[in-house]
Design a protein around this nucleic acid. Sequence first.
DNA 1: GTGGTCTAGACCACA
DNA 2: GTGGTCTAGACCACA
Lengths: 124, 124, 124, 124
Amino acid sequence: MITIDYQSRKPIYEQIVEKFQLLIVKGVLLPDSQMPSVRALAVELAINPNTIQKAYAMLEQQGYIYPVKGRGNFVTDNQDVLQQKRQEFFENLRDLIKKGKDMGISKKACISYMEENWKEGLDL
Amino acid sequence: MITIDYQSRKPIYEQIVEKFQLLIVKGVLLPDSQMPSVRALAVELAINPNTIQKAYAMLEQQGYIYPVKGRGNFVTDNQDVLQQKRQEFFENLRDLIKKGKDMGISKKACISYMEENWKEGLDL
Amino acid sequence: MITIDYQSRKPIYEQIVEKFQLLIVKGVLLPDSQMPSVRALAVELAINPNTIQKAYAMLEQQGYIYPVKGRGNFVTDNQDVLQQKRQEFFENLRDLIKKGKDMGISKKACISYMEENWKEGLDL
Amino acid sequence: MITIDYQSRKPIYEQIVEKFQLLIVKGVLLPDSQMPSVRALAVELAINPNTIQKAYAMLEQQGYIYPVKGRGNFVTDNQDVLQQKRQEFFENLRDLIKKGKDMGISKKACISYMEENWKEGLDL
DNA sequence: GTGGTCTAGACCACA
DNA sequence: GTGGTCTAGACCACA
């Protein structure tokens, strides 16, 4: 369900956070479904439970999951989260556009690149 | 010429590297012009010379500047570097597109956003 | 495992880099085995950890080792590196040949020297 | 007569020394012929006279040239020097052979490479 | 005056 | 415990 790249520059906890963000946003993990337990995931990925705990804490703090005492962590209803993610997407796009302009890339080249690389609705 | 955000999560040396990359790629710093001396910049930014040195070492390793023994560091002729930067731009764009698709953003929305935010040739 | 010549003109960090390059290329250090920790090696060689860190950073940048966050540095699978090293070897040989010719050394003398000094397969 | 690579890692004075060593060993500069004056060469290469002086001092110390008070520097009769250079050549070759063996390059490959790249007596 | 190397030591993120 | 960043400051090579 989750794979870690140990050679990446990104901290493991950050990789875990991002993987789950994606799974939740894409709807693979449904609202109110249970997250894998900290211990089980730690064993499965062969990493320190502290690291999982840290990742879950961030997911909770960002509103992706919520804990239930004694029962575990569950996926939040993701409407708000999705909305916020979309906003971030456009912020990232704006920053990228700014960089592209600075380097003299033409708007036309950029849009045609996007046309080609965005195969709508095929592989969600 | 350069400002540092001391609150940022990004290391200072990395901020310096990125600032100079931009200045060089945008052509603000012309090929073969002299970089500020390690010590002068250290004083100006009120940081340790070692930190500047680390930033300059990275810029050299990435081909942005070249050192001249006993004289200082100078800006590389940046054709190759620009080319490489453009390639990186499109890689970043492709990654972003992938994320956008995952979240169910439509291609149309994305392109129209780009049309609006890319004011061609105005503020290079 | 590693010895430093403090009298040498070569910087300490460069000596460390070259020693490890050799150990890795020769296969003394196996792929994915752990490098000595920065601190342990610093103590062993009685030099500053920063100097080890600089050496390790270069080894990483050259593809000899890779870091794992919070765990340490590990030896890369060295196939590519070995290939590149071999190429460098022949470049060095070509340069040396050029010098020899300039000084009027005969090809014959050179090859017979090589025949004598290359005891194949004895002391790998 | 002499060209400097300002972008090289090698110090300028070292480049000058090596260029003259080659010219003298190859016999381009004949025994007892006059070296360019420190000042003239400094002007020609557009570098600091101190740097030329340092290079000449090394050439003298290594036996390539000798100074005559008030008249300038002159090329030494180069027999001894050539002999020593040849010795250095074979030392370098021995070191290179050692490295090659360590990397598992076969003697045969190495000798055949040499056969191909040593075009005897053509372009001295 | 220019950058390069190194030390001693602090503080931090990560696992 | 692991490496990464940064400071303060010394000393050196080079031009």
